[in-house]
Nucleic acid binder design. Sequence first.
DNA 1: CAGAATCTGAGGTACGTAAATCAGAAAACT
DNA 2: AGTTTTCTGATTTACGTACCTCAGATTCTG
Lengths: 341, 341
Amino acid sequence: MKPTVHDIARSAGVSLATVDRVLNGRPGVRAVTRSKVEEAIAALGFVRDLAAANLAKSRTYSFVFILPDYDNSFMKGLRREVVAASERASTERTEIRIVAVPHFDPHALVAALEEVLADKPNGVAFVAIDAPEVREIAAKLNEAGVPMVTLVSDLPASSRDHYAGIDNIAAGRTAGSLLGRFLSGREAKVAVLAGSMLVRDHRERVEGFLAVMAEAYPNLRVLPVIEGRDDSALVEEKVSEAFEVTPDIAGIYSLGGGNRGLLRVLRKVPLEARPVVVAHDLTDATRAALGEGIIDAVLNQDAGHEVRSAVRVLKAKADGLPVIEAQERIRIDIFLKDNLP
Amino acid sequence: MKPTVHDIARSAGVSLATVDRVLNGRPGVRAVTRSKVEEAIAALGFVRDLAAANLAKSRTYSFVFILPDYDNSFMKGLRREVVAASERASTERTEIRIVAVPHFDPHALVAALEEVLADKPNGVAFVAIDAPEVREIAAKLNEAGVPMVTLVSDLPASSRDHYAGIDNIAAGRTAGSLLGRFLSGREAKVAVLAGSMLVRDHRERVEGFLAVMAEAYPNLRVLPVIEGRDDSALVEEKVSEAFEVTPDIAGIYSLGGGNRGLLRVLRKVPLEARPVVVAHDLTDATRAALGEGIIDAVLNQDAGHEVRSAVRVLKAKADGLPVIEAQERIRIDIFLKDNLP
DNA sequence: CAGAATCTGAGGTACGTAAATCAGAAAACT
DNA sequence: AGTTTTCTGATTTACGTACCTCAGATTCTG
């Protein structure tokens, strides 16, 4: 049988109240008595029953998720996952509040975080914008002891407790290797299509991609980065333009949103002239394109995993418990048409 | 505030005892009263507090994990993960018993499962061997209402509740596509290295691989499958032999264990003549080889994820709760040297 | 050595649910 | 009508921990 506080009390020869004082770090216990109790705890291998403790405390967890009100497939999916998590969480004394903020707007994010600071919930998760003012408020939250998880897009490691997202440099490198291998040695031109170089994750993907190109694929010439603002109409326009200027594009790395626009252009390219394409984010559009062979590989981050991970980590931090690192590592999923879920 | 059983009782105008009878499906409630209570439950949106319920019941979960006593890297890792899960589980009123059985021995597995049937734990997970006698005992366990999860290797879907493992046909197909793309169009010979064609997962990988070869890569000639018994010494011997007979092997799909033996041979092959290699299972050896460029891609199943998933599913089944399908899907991880964890 | 300050024990209530007992009410039988 | 059966309410105890109060014991202070 698992030992209980009563067993500790009996074994240490003290009363329940004293055990309770030791366990919860309350004052009023002599050092000698304290260590007697601690020995008994260690000897019996007592571990506090969290469920019972939470019940007694009527502890509830309150978490805040700050999400950009951006309307691309990925963010929509992310919101959906947060809502789903929030519904499940209600059975577990956990309340998840969702706050929407205008996207790419550091000030709006800061304002939302300031409200969080005033509120003092048991944890906060947000899609970070790596700007000085955001780092500043993050430092304040940290100081105030509010567990903090960045979601999808990170801040410097010092100012948050955990990052639930992929390593974007590694993602860029992976895309580079795939493209390089798929193009296998031939002299060719490669286009890079990003959303915006102002966003850290996109910058990092480009960085990783270019590094691999430079290191391993001197045969490939990378054209200037096209910024499509994650907007499929704009993407379509800019990619069309690029094909007019450079008809012999042999490879494309699309690392942002707006892939629908890219696909519209690609479908017009004659089959034999179609470039090798590596894109990000598994959506209905990219999934279909993978199946047709218009896209060759899709890199993906699992929004569901990210959200569940964020909730688990926040809960663990709130309880002062360790996290299972391996479980919380967000992978870069690589999908070919053969391993689609 | 979340409604409690007391609120239900008050709202329905019945006593606590009656609410309890309805909630737990006990007899002794008239149909009219029952539906009154059910209406109140629906109206208030009551959800039973599982933590409190389990506390009151002093419910404990007892799960059995049956693992083959096989000593390759993967099985060692799997056992390690089960042990880790078992340690964590002890804080959550969950006891995980680990049973070792001789590997590839259907009768030993059946014997272990028969013990489980006598024991009636709250759930069982095992690395399945797809043999008639195993299916038979699985059916009995199913009938006895013991939740059952197959781990790594599956049975037909009907006889278990859940499979915590990868889709091996998809894995084979993925390997085939990678190899095909990496070899890009040239006429070449490809070797397939399996552990044993008697094991279902290996058979399925080969099946998927050959299917893709036939569909999409007519330029590649697949040599007869080499069976290395997951034993690195034997693998080394047989692969050496294969290279003697066919010096111009341009691609290798290694889908079983014993990769250390394969690597010993490959390191002797002159750099420019080295084949493209896709292997299974990320171990110290394959990880190092990826880094060196001796292996080009590694397909992996995350043993930690599989074990945690199995535990979550067993718990959910024991509580009659739904599982989050997306969370329990085990991915085929694809590692290049660029996205190693 | 008295008085104050600090420590400790005993006991209780609470959290939300499960499960049991017992008594009374209502319905279904003779 | 009386008897049996079935339903329902009231009440209690329990799970393991948290947290409160109060009294008594011990130590420290002057």
